[in-house]
Amino acid sequence: MRPSSFRYHKAESVDHALELLARFGEDGRPLAGGQSLVPMMNLRLAAPEHLVDIGGLPLTDIAFTDTAMRVGALVRHRQYLAEPRVAHHFPALHEAVTWIGHPTIRENGTTGGSLSHADPTAELALAAMLYDAVMIVRNTAGERRIAAADFFEDAYVTALQPGEMLVAAEFPLPPVGAAGAFVEFAERRGDFAIAAIGVSITVADGRIATAAIACSGAEPRPIRAPEIEMMLSGRPLTDPQSRAAGRRLAAAIDPVGTFLTTADYRKALIGELTARAIDTACARAASR
């Protein structure tokens, strides 16, 4: 229950971190909050030879432009909860963050760490899929932008290449008045989720204009549900037929069973959570 030896390097700037990561390639990993990497190292599931401590770098802000919210890689989870514009523009993201771990983990865990770790049921990864976030990735050669849908490739696998580091995530602002909800089920509050659903809707004349639905627990990475999104478009907020939408999503997915849950249980759970999330988002939109 203690990590194997590694060499420690404190990055003095983002460029310095990128130089170090370029030099170490596959053998180097950035270290920030350590809330995912260090448990894996303690359990010897990970044994990087070089850790590049980026904890002191100035990537700590949530910034807004007219079109997007840019979240620095070192933004702590609790910062989302302290910034009222997050709840205003991205209600499902705000609600998702309340489900991340426990208060002490939310004080120390970072956005870049969670997204790069890519746990299959991580709340931030699901929110990034839901809101079509773009990952801003840098190496010593420059910067590239990767859509969330292309970034999360498999369980704990992302499009990040050796020498690259996530420096920010950019969330395009939804239309004014977008409503949302995030629901999750875990064995105990704060545990890793068994499944979760995020919903974001825009509204016109008391009806759903557009809908986005993201789901974790169905596949080894968070997915969108475009068929269900199409189904919901045009439905009245007072009767979105959420049960039918949930059943349809449950029928369309093929989750694997684990020691905790059978595949059938997980399908039923995702159907139920889908219905609840749609109902909650519609009720919130209707109550405005």
Partner: peptide, 15 residues
């Protein structure tokens, strides 16, 4: 001043 799990923290990070 911030609560933190000392088992998920390397001492070198706290210099």
């Amino acid at each position: 001043g911030t609560p933190r799990l000392a088992c998920l923290t390397f001492a070198v990070q706290c210099d």
